[in-house]
């Protein structure tokens, strides 16, 4: 069936099978490969994207459920080639190791800061509860999110 939606600010219209998962639609049909499939069971958060500004796991959503909605992936965060403050902070604070969890972490963090611009460290840790880093680099990830919160409100 035909769906119309907005992906990273651009209106799109695509033919999709109803059973196509949003993450596969984004990766294969839109060519946006930032969102990764880690667990495929709503646990790891590697597939996190923003749906109307709220973080969701795109492995547990159908592309047809996104019809009429706005999706943002990590590719869409950097406006005009300028890194988003969260991306900038992950680079500065060494918030990634292998990088597999990073697009999901960055999107979850961007969603968290949109809802709570001044989180405490505990709120950052709880806010990223749905994202696993198998390199276990949580310490720097939390530091990066706190630093991004500071730079966004500055």
């Amino acid at each position: 069936m035909q769906i119309k939606l907005t992906v990273n600010g651009e209106p799109r219209s695509d033919e999709v099978e109803p059973r196509l998962l949003l993450v596969h639609y984004l990766r294969e049909q839109c060519g946006l490969r930032a969102a990764n499939v880690g667990c495929d069971t709503t646990s790891c958060g590697a597939c996190t994207v923003l749906l109307n500004g709220k973080s969701v796991k795109s492995c547990t959503m159908l592309a047809v459920q996104a019809a009429g909605q706005e999706i943002t992936t990590a590719e869409g965060l950097a406006a005009g080639g300028e890194l988003h403050p969260v991306q900038q902070a992950f680079r500065q604070e060494h918030g990634l190791q292998c990088g597999f969890c990073t697009p999901g972490m960055v999107m979850a963090a961007a969603g968290l800061l949109a809802e709570n611009p001044h989180p405490t460290e505990a709120e950052v840790r709880e806010g990223l509860e749905g994202n696993f880093c198998r390199c276990t680099g949580y310490h720097n990830i939390v530091r990066a999110v706190l630093s991004a919160a500071g730079s966004m409100s500055a």
Binding site: T42, G45, T48, L51, K54, S55, V56, K57, T60, M61, A108, G111, L112, G127, E129, G130, N131
Partner: peptide, 9 residues
């Protein structure tokens, strides 16, 4: 319930 992403859906 679950985590923030799960609670959004």
């Amino acid at each position: 319930v679950g985590d923030p992403q799960i609670r959004h859906r």
